[in-house]
């Protein structure tokens, strides 16, 4: 795999492995072109798994893995895939990677995989993955696509981790299962049941989008 990834770099000696243009693939999706808050992709799973930090962390890692490798594989195969059946090919690649992730989770992190339940399988229909394959990997070289995958994956990860942080802090008074408010001696901290519920996720994400778009100055018509 790494051979395939490094090939274009070897051919084009003029461009560094992490040139300025390539760094933009990683840095753009973090803030200015964030997949969740700006492009409105992948919201389904972004909200469902964010009740606590730990499953969210595992979910982010799983999604980054799937995006990076599906981008790499599709980009390496891009000249061999007939245009008419590309959606099926993309789905097959994504689904195989998700089966891999699912089996690993079941073997090594059984508790977390029980919490995530069907949402691991739903990475297949996560619009970010499909979106990146369609918009980027089908027309770019493997190494660029890998960087693009990392960018979109991390852009997704930091948003859902922020949502999970507030939901766990306000909903259960803890962070990664550590009781923050009891530790600082405020044992009567009133936890908010709304945050544990699905509704809390909508409201927290709405507020994050508001703050982020106000900072970047992005206005939707």
């Amino acid at each position: 795999m790494s051979e395939v990834a490094e090939q274009p770099v070897a051919k084009k000696k003029s461009e560094a492995l992490l040139s300025k243009r390539r760094r933009k693939f990683v840095s753009d999706p973090l803030v200015d072109d964030n997949p969740i808050t700006i492009q409105v992709l992948g919201i389904c799973s972004a909200l469902a798994v964010t009740v606590q930090m730990k499953p969210t962390m595992v979910m982010s890692i799983a999604v980054v893995f799937v995006i990076v490798f599906s981008n790499l594989i599709i980009s390496a195969l891009r000249n061999l895939i007939p245009n008419r059946v590309r959606i099926i090919v993309q789905l097959a690649v994504i689904a195989s990677l998700v089966v891999l992730v699912d089996q690993v989770l079941k073997a090594f992190l059984y508790d977390v995989s029980k919490v995530l339940s069907v949402f691991v399988g739903l990475i297949i229909t996560n619009c970010i993955v499909m979106g990146r394959l369609e918009a980027f990997a089908m027309g770019n070289k493997p190494w660029d696509s890998v960087l693009d995958g990392f960018g979109s994956g991390f852009g997704y990860a930091w948003i859902i981790l922020t949502v999970a942080f507030f939901r766990e802090l306000l909903g259960s008074g803890s962070v990664f299962g550590f009781k923050v408010f009891e530790a600082i001696g405020w044992e009567s901290f009133p936890t908010n049941g709304l945050m544990v519920d699905s509704i809390g996720a909508f409201i927290i994400l709405g507020i994050i989008i508001w703050v982020q778009r106000t900072k970047t100055g992005y206005v939707e018509n």
Partner: peptide, 20 residues
Amino acid sequence: VPNGLKGLGITMLITGLMGI
């Protein structure tokens, strides 16, 4: 609607209220 909240932001908040 405030500029930053236009589109997706206000839609998320409305969805939350509909959920309630």
